[in-house]
Design a protein around this nucleic acid. Structure first.
Lengths: 207, 207
DNA sequence: GTCTATAGAAGGATAGAC
DNA sequence: GTCTATCCTTCTATAGAC
């Protein structure tokens, strides 16, 4: 395979990523992808055979990318507080560079849950889970976080980072009415969300 | 217009809601809607003229329904703490009955932001905003919530309720690996999310 | 490997009978 | 108001030249 091939394949892949992110699988058009890539439709089929296979390639890539962003915060050698701050800083920065990913992935998992399941099966969730519990045993106990409540905390943290991007269209419109800028809001959020979560888990219950 | 008409129109509307929620505007098929409603395609056009107008009708209805669910918690005569508990209880219950709404709305606003903007323009956001600030002046001050940080708090609260439903496909798959049931998780969440938020805003800063 | 031209299927929309 | 039959556009996919 020559350098020319690789470049062509890459161009198609990038054009397809844009088109699929904007329009979803069913809304995307092979003709649009060809136009974006500056070539003709026939070449897309030469390299990827069908629309569905091209989509599969794109979706697998971005879903893996998204998943991989959770790893450092789960496995790193930091305290829970540090991990929470690290996660919001890094993950929101990643989403600032890829603001359409959340909507794209949410859309697809709702229309075809099987596609994401295949990808998740390649991750050893049990192992990751066990690691978190073992590594932070003392801290979790100190914060009153039990194994049973960990799913609630985890989804809470992810919600705070991902949801604003997924719902951007609504949020931006509502904010515009009260003079709030979405980008500034997102930039502030790295700090706000981390503080918010840490305050909550460190709060001592009143008797 | 006879009773028969109304029933037919309603049947179409419900079938269309299901089909659009599952497949989105571009993925939905008029033939499928006709099948679900137990009639033929031509009738859909007789009542709603085009696919896009039918979609518009469905989307407007469910988006308004979703929006209206925020009103009682924003305008009611309760303390902030009571409103937070009330919101999570009522809103998550509503989503338990309509679990596909978040994904459906997020999908559409990402592909066609204009559609939701038209609906939001009919709400006087400034007025709602002003009401919250006026009505809870003392409480907000006591909790250290400023007008500037209110957007962060509001989106935080909504995230915690809506996101799990939007990302259900992923969450369910991950949970299945560690033996967590999605429905129980959601039921618990009404309490967990409320406690989580209230702990965070009532925490006194250490000096 | 890349292009033009076109096949062939799918899907939205309408005509016209009842 | 409801149905069957069909039109016509759109879109994926392929054939075949270069």
């Amino acid at each position: 395979m020559t350098t020319g091939d690789r470049q062509t394949e890459e161009k198609i892949f990038e054009a397809a990523t844009d088109e699929f992110e904007e329009n979803g699988l069913t809304g995307a058009r092979m003709q649009n992808i060809a136009d974006r890539a500056g070539m003709n439709k026939a070449l897309l089929h030469y390299y990827f055979r069908t629309k569905d296979l091209l989509f599969e390639a794109v979706f697998t890539k971005v879903a893996r990318q998204m998943m991989s962003k959770f790893k450092p915060a789960l496995e790193g050698n930091m305290t829970i507080e540090e991990k929470i701050r690290f996660f919001f800083r890094e993950h929101i920065s990643f989403l600032q560079d890829n603001p359409r990913l959340p909507g794209f992935i949410i859309n697809e998992i709702n229309h075809n849950p099987a596609r994401i399941k295949k990808i998740i099966r390649n991750i050893d969730i049990k192992e990751v889970w066990k690691n978190v519990l073992d590594q932070h045993k003392d801290e979790l106990h100190r914060y009153n976080i039990t194994e049973e409540s960990l799913p609630q905390l985890m989804t809470t943290i992810v919600s705070l980072s991902v949801f604003p991007f997924a719902a951007r269209g609504i949020i931006e419109e509502i904010f515009s009415n009260v003079g709030v800028d979405f980008n500034s809001y997102i930039e502030e959020r790295k700090q706000y969300a981390a503080d918010f979560v840490i305050r909550s888990i460190t709060k001592k219950e009143e008797s």
